[in-house]
Computed example of a mutant assay.
Amino acid sequence: MPTLILVRHGRSTANTSGLLAGRMPNVALDERGLTQAGALPGRLAELPLAAVVSSPLERCRETVRPLLDSRPGLPLHIEERVNECDYGLWSGRKLTELNDEPLMEVVQQHPSAAAFPGGESMRGMQARAVDAVRDWNARIEEEHGAEAVYVICSHGDVIKSLVADALGLHLDHFQRISVEPCSLTAIRYTRLRPYLLRLGDTGDFAGLAPREDGSSAADARDAAVGGGAGAP
């Protein structure tokens, strides 16, 4: 079966504003995000890509645009099932405010039981995304062969849930996974099991260095809902 390259969208204006964007319209890449997207063709230059599949949201489509421009004829498919989690009434709110919501503890510690008010459950998010990957694996293999490589551009929580599925982890463990903006995660699917080949690869380890206040990325108590803004 094919190898899937999962690309989280580049850093967005919502990421840098500390907002949980969800499916809000008109959330674009910021300056750094555009630079990250511009580097994507070079990072994937050695791979003979069969197709690009993207969430319908603007920040994902902006992320893959330089890649598509660099490869005329590479098809783009919009896939609703890899859309951002529907955070419902949480969408557009400051993450610092949401940290005080009782539901946040459930999101962090027992996400399989978390359902966002007016939105979807995290369990439902994972189920639709996994179904989408299974369907696209079959389609890509049928059209391009078992050794094909293709890209899906999606969102932090969606990608983390797909990694958890590939590793055989319960969804309640998916907050242990981190994928920064425009990071690449590679999963090789076979008949009997998937193999995680790369996880959240940005090619940049600067974010692991101690910060001016003496803390480090490893000191964060909770996972960044929505994926966070990445290294400063």
Score class of each variant (00 low, 15 high):
Gly38Ser: 12
Asp213Asn: 07
Leu67Trp: 11
Thr16Gln: 08
Asp30Val: 00
Ile187Gly: 03
Gly145Ile: 10
Ser54Pro: 13
Glu142Ala: 15
Cys182Val: 09
Arg43Leu: 12
Gly145Thr: 09
Gln108Asn: 08
Glu62Trp: 08
Arg128Pro: 14
Arg134Gly: 10
Arg61Glu: 12
Arg59Met: 04
Arg139Gly: 02
Ala166Leu: 08
Asp204Met: 00
Ser112Asp: 12
Ile5Pro: 00
Arg8Met: 13
Ala113Met: 14
Ala21Asp: 05
Pro25Thr: 10
Asp222Thr: 11
Pro56Asp: 02
Ser12Ile: 08
Gly18Ser: 08
Asp30Leu: 02
Ser154Leu: 02
Ala39His: 03
Val64Ser: 09
Gly22Leu: 03
Arg43Ile: 04
Asp213His: 00
Gly168Pro: 01
Arg198Met: 15
Arg191Trp: 01
Thr96Asp: 13
Arg81Gly: 11
Val179Gly: 07
Tyr195Leu: 14
Gly118Val: 10
Met125His: 03
Thr63Glu: 09
Gly42Arg: 12
Thr96His: 10
Ala218His: 00
Leu19Arg: 08
Ala217Phe: 00
Lys160His: 10
Ala220Cys: 06
Thr185Trp: 04
Val7Pro: 03
Val163Gly: 06
Val158Asp: 06
Leu4Met: 15
Ala127Gly: 03
Arg43Asp: 06
Ala220Pro: 00
Arg134Ala: 11
Ser17His: 11
Gly226Asn: 03
Ala39Gln: 04
Pro48Glu: 14
Ala223Thr: 07
Cys85Gly: 10
Tyr195Val: 13
Leu95Glu: 08
Cys85Leu: 12
Arg128Leu: 13
Leu103Lys: 07
Thr16Arg: 09
